[in-house]
Design a protein around this nucleic acid. Structure first.
Lengths: 336, 336
DNA sequence: CCCTGAGACGGAAACGTTTCCAGCGACCAT
DNA sequence: ATGGTCGCTGGAAACGTTTCCGTCTCAGGG
């Protein structure tokens, strides 16, 4: 754990002033011989500029933040990877932050990161309200939202129409002859949950199908999915659905897990669809029909938007759309 | 995107000096009325201290780094979550960095993060050599390694005995009557790959089993696993194993995928075991026998070690061991 | 009543960097 | 020959914070 050399020491060794040394290293108006002298000195000392000093002076940290509720969710991992891939080559580091499930802790995270920690923020809020929207809009750094934002906001955002996506899943199930569709939702009050429910209700109404009510898991996880479906099957009174549309691949897998325990076959007895088309969907058995929402694309687009704003681009709020795409596999009984 | 107030403005509004204002906010020797005055002013302006200025002055960034080869790997995601949970409450942010597959880019990452970006670094290097070890040892910030380090190094580390873990998997397979065991390894030259191979060879020798050679995937991913096993099965000449020990859950799943395509039943025709006991292992079908290496515990322990070093604890290098644990499930044919 | 010590406060330095600005040659054109 | 321009350099300021140190006040003890 040795000490790091400073620009001062490099300047001394090179026999130049601080100003010239800095210029020589950053390549702004220095003579060739000066550059060589300084580079040599820097190399000999093993000099690398101090991030704190540089941040303070330049007003930039060369870090971007990524804030989500649960970084364990594969969707967010994908986004993070994509963001990393975009900003890394530009010299930026990625700071991850978890917002927790409620709005106030999200607000705290934004504030904490805004105070000179990162130059910009990509955030995918599970829940939102007017105050949070205001805060994001008036944050001292650019903020890009992955998810739905209110009409007329000045925030850049990238979104996928999950409601339409759910509709595609329903269409396919109906096409395959299913009639008693049940929606397995994530925690109510979250933005994804309400959007996806809307999509489901609309699609079911469109097909004139009976409403079987909805199953609500208390989290977007495998375990929560299993618990929810278990409770349904325990409740003997309830009419058994012939298809379950899950709001999430994780929930879908949890659901299949519960069905399997009761020796119900997927897709013969009950068809199941998920959403997000995570990596597991393709290799799962039965392979999982899922609606891809392009997590990688969304992360990439968000990062690109953010970098542009950090770079000073003005213009009106951008709103990037990523189209949902249904990937039909075994769990939904295949194409009609 | 408003501007942020500085301590100066708070001091002005409160009618106090910078020094007193700082003290009042950080709670060091200020009178109650001063504290109140300053707090009020700070709240009115919405003041939060600037991270860059503070870092520069204090010589601490309140950030820790986490560097791994592929942040998409569920093992690393688990570790990251654990690290986050440990350091977050202490006011630290987590910076993720990907080291790439080679040693030199790992070195670059360490250097970049050492220059005042983070106060400490948790790193899990896939490959290593003497130069890299030296660099980590002499880095200007504390470094904790997740993985095996050379005897006598001064680096803190936390490690799981994956060789012994592989041995446990082999024992169980042999106990279940399997005799022709094949090892599906990850990319050679990586530390995990060599350790796990050693464990496999030792266990096979111990049981006096025939050596079927080894299958090498070019990455620790599902796709690479599928490709490797495909190539084995395509090669009609090779004698078919009755069990495959994969170096990794991802490889194991890829392997099962390939077997399934040939209509080979797992575990009837071929038993399969994985390693890491990722979340998917439990819910996969067939559920996957796997050796848990405690990714969460390792991440947690590493973060705690790191915080202690950052706090200035001196003492000799710590070496935390996490015991491997075999979780027997369907894919290996169950217990003998 | 004076001296001492404790407690609170403000001025100023310091952290390491980039960049503004002025100065200084050298060179070219008038 | 002189004025102007250009390229390069060094001094110094600035970013926002914490903390050292000196000063001041006030209370209490001798």
């Amino acid at each position: 754990m040795g000490r790091r050399p400073t620009l001062h020491e490099v300047a001394n060794l090179a026999g130049a002033s601080l100003a010239s040394t800095s210029r020589a290293l950053n390549g702004n108006g220095a003579s060739p011989e000066m550059i060589e002298k300084v580079q040599a000195a820097a190399k000999r000392l093993g000099y690398y500029p101090d991030a704190a000093g540089r941040s303070l002076r330049m007003g930039r940290t060369f870090q971007v933040g990524f804030a989500v509720a649960d970084i364990g969710n594969p969707v967010y991992v994908d986004m993070m990877k994509a963001i990393h891939e975009v900003v890394g080559p530009q010299g930026y580091h990625v700071v991850v932050a978890t917002t927790g499930n409620d709005v106030t802790s999200t607000a705290d995270v934004i504030r904490a990161l805004s105070s000179g920690v990162v130059d910009g923020l990509v955030i995918s809020p599970l829940r939102s309200n007017e105050a949070l929207a205001q805060q994001m809009e008036h944050a001292p750094i650019p903020v890009v939202v992955i998810g739905r934002v209110a009409e007329g906001t000045t925030l850049d955002s990238v979104w996928a129409d999950s409601a339409a996506g759910i509709g595609m899943a329903v269409d396919q199930l109906v096409g395959a002859g299913r009639r008693r569709l049940l929606f397995l939702n994530g925690p109510l009050g979250t933005t994804p949950a309400s959007r996806r429910l809307q999509g489901f209700d609309a699609a079911v109404a469109r097909h004139g199908l009976p409403l079987l009510g909805m199953l609500v898991a208390d989290d977007f996880t495998v375990e929560a999915g299993t618990r929810a479906v278990d409770s349904l099957l325990d409740d003997g009174a309830a009419e058994r659905p012939d298809a379950i549309v899950a709001a999430n691949d994780l929930l879908a897998i949890g659901c299949i897990q519960a069905l399997r325990r009761r020796h119900l076959s997927v897709p013969r007895d009950v068809a199941v669809t998920g959403m997000d088309d995570t990596e597991i969907a393709a290799v799962f058995s039965p392979s999982l029909t899922s609606v891809a929402l392009g997590s990688r694309e969304r992360g990439k687009a968000a990062a690109e938007l953010l970098l542009r704003r950090i770079g000073g681009e003005q213009g009106p709020a951008q709103r990037v759309h990523v189209a949902p795409r249904l990937v039909v596999r075994e769990s939904s009984g295949g194409p009609a």
